[in-house]
Design a protein around this nucleic acid. Structure first.
Length: 599
RNA sequence: GGCCUGGUAGCUCAGUUGGUUAGAGCGCCGCCCUGUCACGGCGGAGGUCGUGGGUUCAAGUCCCAUCCAGGUCGCCA
């Protein structure tokens, strides 16, 4: 080893010891005679002091030339700082008086400062990621990610789970995310698909008798990127046999509790809140409600016909719904300008407009109800509305009147904007977990003019709903569950269909013919016919989990080498064109412009 | 693919109704300084204002197109 200690190690107990440190130059303070250098590694910062009387003229001369980010090896004596301690530094009680210096490497002037005080935007950071990784926030995030992974592995190991790796080069299956494709050299014209998840493999492992499976699995999806979506990302993937919904949910909760306990020192509740999908949509307009604040949605559909307001009445007449949010006492925080911006936002979410009412000092007075919808509501209806919404002085009411799906989207969006941004009711370190379970098995797709699987086509319906598969597919609920944290879906899964007969019925309801099913999922149906155990599982998004734990604004900040929004890695300059020779080996002809191919 | 925001020095940003030689802080370079710790002092270098076109006596500023970055909707079973 070149060093005896790290830059975060030394304390008063080391005083008078001779030690050797290695690290990068964080900062140099040259006083003409005495020179201070803050030496940095991932463990901390130590002040090393070049006193010309102690370090010798040669070392002092060299210390004069040293610049930021040079790599040094320094040997010297640990001394007390006396009354010049630095309370901001873990090693601030001591300093190292250098007696020997070796410059291990010089460094070009970095494109940005490796310094927490200096803001740097993402573009230069990603371009020189190796420098960005030296910065404390990135180091903290990656260390936290490591800790989470270790806790997860220990937890599942202690619960008799087996870690099994599954292929990332696999077969294209229709439906779901767009796959990255990999051309086969040995099978001209054929392609592997990069796994979008280990879903089918883990079910096959259950058939294979591995009744508790875990994998920290890399997944690939060729879809547009977001601050919480990367083309390759990591799932904590698990599957269990001989279980029902509660068992998986308990296991997932246990993992979350242990992660929060060991990584954050925070004790989560012994039982997470559970809510059906239907209740979530009704009260929060979302399948992933943020429960850090109230602002619950109230259904007024039965009241609307009596309201006297034609917009509400016609919404109900057209088989829609009318619902509302009461932002208690928010009147002063919501200016006319803000309300206009909210209205624009509502339109962006699909609403025709946003009816709102501002309540003045006396809710009993008609003139204290102000806003686009206020005048149109009859006095009797207003009194009833006041009771239902618990209206008081200074409240602001927001209404949605449209098809149910639109109202959920709009009021759900308005609720988030109010709670998170406008009224600032949500704290980052307030951990509100819940389960959203029993979502509809199918969702009507306007685009396909057919029912499509809400989760995936192997999700098990409640047995008592099986008959409705043919008569009313939209009403069938599934044994599905999502773990939601502060409005983010951090994990989800389902009980799977384990018998071929039920699977065939679901395929039929989805309009997949037996021949189609055989061609696309034949291997699964085949496997199910050989004694598949009842099974189910779930997967957590590791990147999102770590993002929330660290408070990072993007999963890019918890991934060592992420891609930008266009899927490019500007450090590697990737993706790149390849040579004609390579394409020929792969039996590929590109339709891209000639300029995009490499020589 | 749609919408929103942005692009000015290595970094973070300012730049008025279009008007002299485009500024600041940090960083960088040089000199000075023996107790600083985001040290301090003095001096200096550094810009095709993303790119192309247009309007104008005059464009960082106005118009059009385009590229890039981020956010968002679609998409993500």
């Amino acid at each position: 080893m070149m060093r005896t200690h790290t830059c975060g190690d030394l304390r008063a107990a080391h005083i008078d010891q001779t030690v050797t440190l290695c690290g990068w130059v964080q900062n140099r303070r040259d006083h003409g005679g005495i020179i201070f250098i803050d030496l940095r590694d991932r463990y901390g910062l130590t002040q090393v002091t070049f006193d010309p009387d102690l370090c010798g003229a040669a070392a002092h001369e060299q210390a004069n030339r040293i610049r930021s980010e040079w790599v040094l090896k320094v040997t010297g004596t640990v001394k007390s700082r006396g009354d010049r301690k630095n309370p901001n530094l873990a090693t601030g009680e001591i300093e190292l008086f250098v007696t020997g210096l070796e410059i291990l490497n010089q460094a070009a002037t970095p494109p940005f400062e490796i310094d927490d005080h200096v803001k740097v935007s993402e573009e230069p950071r990603l371009k020189s990621r190796f420098l960005d990784l030296r910065r404390a926030p990135m180091q903290r995030n990656l260390i936290t990610r490591h800790q989470v992974m270790q806790v997860v592995r220990r937890y599942f190991d202690a619960n008799q789970f087996l870690e099994v790796e599954t292929p990332t080069l696999c077969k294209y299956t229709p439906g779901g995310a767009r796959n990255f494709l990999v051309p086969s050299r040995m099978q001209p014209g054929s392609f592997y698909a990069m796994a979008e998840s280990p879903q089918l493999f883990k079910q096959l492992l259950m058939v294979g008798g591995y009744d508790r499976y875990i994998q920290i699995a890399r997944c690939y999806r060729d879809e547009d990127l977001r601050n919480d979506r990367q083309p390759e990302f990591t799932q904590i993937d698990l599957e269990m046999s001989f279980i029902d919904m509660d068992d998986i949910m308990d296991m997932g909760e246990g993992m979350a509790r242990q992660v929060w306990r060991e990584v954050l020192g925070f004790e989560l509740p012994a039982k997470f809140r559970r809510m059906t999908w239907t209740e979530g949509m009704l009260k929060y307009g979302s399948d992933k409600p943020d429960l850090r604040f109230g602002l619950e949605i109230v259904d007024l559909t039965d009241w609307a016909p009596t309201s006297g307001f034609s917009v509400f009445q016609s919404a109900v007449a057209n088989k829609g719904v009318v619902r509302a949010i009461n932002a208690k006492g928010a009147s002063e925080q919501l200016s006319r300008r803000t309300l206009d911006a909210l209205t624009e936002q509502a339109k962006g979410l699909g609403a025709k407009g946003l009816a709102w009412i501002k309540i003045g000092a006396d809710p009993a007075k008609a003139e204290d109800w102000q806003g686009p919808a206020a005048k149109n509501i009859t006095p009797e209806a207003r009194a009833e509305l006041g009771r239902r919404l618990g209206v008081g002085p200074g409240d602001v009411l927001f209404f949605g009147a449209d098809r149910e799906k639109t109202v959920c989207t709009v009021l759900g969006g308005i609720r988030l904007e109010l709670g998170r941004n406008l009224l600032k009711l949500a704290r980052q370190d307030d951990w509100q977990f819940l389960w959203i379970h029993s979502a509809p098995l199918f969702e009507w797709s306007e685009e396909a003019n057919a029912f499509v699987a809400n989760h995936h086509p192997f999700t098990c319906p409640y047995p008592e709903h099986l008959d409705a598969l043919t008569t009313d597919p939209g009403s069938v609920l599934s044994k599905s569950y999502d773990m939601v944290l502060n409005g983010n879906e951090i994990g989800g899964g389902s009980i799977r269909i384990h018998d071929a007969a039920t699977q065939s019925k679901v395929f039929a309801a989805l309009g997949i013919s037996p021949e189609d099913a055989q061609r696309k999922f034949g291997f699964l149906l085949h496997a199910l016919s050989f004694g598949a155990p009842p099974h189910g599982g779930m997967a957590f998004g590791l990147d999102r989990l770590v993002m929330l734990i660290t408070g990072a604004e993007s999963i890019r900040d918890v991934i060592a080498f992420p891609k930008n929004q266009r899927g490019r890695d500007e450090m590697l300059d990737c993706p790149t064109p390849v040579s004609d020779r390579q394409l020929k080996d792969l039996h590929i002809v590109t339709a891209a412009p000639a300029a995009a191919t490499a020589p």
